[in-house]
């Protein structure tokens, strides 16, 4: 290695040493702790990772649903103007399938994720953990998936078996073969 190259390498190393505390190449952005991210860390996966403490029951959910959800989703989840939430179990092979929380969603815990992050439409991220558990329980009850006396929490919600749990398959496209004929008689 020439002296020039050695000096150059040393210069690069010195430059790196002078970068801010984190490991990056460019030293841009600030380190942040997971604790500081907590308010934004709202995703909940099928295993229920991320579910907060607290609990809510079907009985608690009924009035919350009536007050905050029914105006868009119907008194019993029948929809209009927004999505139908209830029914359709067993309809997915039909000519007119009905895709709802009950008939289509594969996992229960992500229901909590979506209600908290995006609902009510005009006031997302406003419901307490109790309210979200309760509305989730009420929706699952309306769909006949849990009994009326159910209370859900971080432990029990991920264990709820959804009817369409095994209804999803991987993408096998390209699934069609067309021929690039110029005369296709």
């Amino acid at each position: 290695m020439s002296m020039f190259k050695v000096v150059k390498s040393l210069m690069v190393m010195c430059a790196l040493v002078n970068l801010p505390a984190h490991a990056g190449v460019y030293g841009l952005g600030k380190p942040i702790s997971e604790h500081a991210v907590a308010a934004w860390n709202i995703d909940i996966n099928p295993a229920g990772d991320g579910l907060p403490s607290g609990s809510g029951s079907v009985a608690q959910g009924q009035p919350i649903y009536a007050a905050k959800c029914a105006s868009c989703h119907g008194a019993k989840g029948e929809g209009k103007p927004a999505d139908v939430l209830v029914g359709g179990i067993g309809s997915l092979k039909n000519d007119k399938p009905l895709k709802t929380v009950g008939s289509f969603w594969p996992y229960a815990a992500p229901i909590y994720d979506f209600i908290y992050r995006a609902m009510p439409y005009n006031e997302p991220q406003s419901l307490s953990a109790t309210e979200v558990y309760a509305v989730t329980a009420y929706l699952l009850f309306l769909n006949g998936i849990v009994p009326a006396e159910t209370t859900l929490d971080a432990k029990s919600l991920p264990l709820v078996q959804m009817p369409n749990r095994n209804g999803f398959v991987s993408d096998v496209r390209p699934d069609v073969v067309n021929m690039p004929c110029l005369k296709c008689y």
Binding site: D43, I44, P46, V101, F104, W105, D113
Partner: peptide, 10 residues
Amino acid sequence: KPFFARNETS
């Protein structure tokens, strides 16, 4: 793992 969010299931 993937998250199975509403916009990739429902």
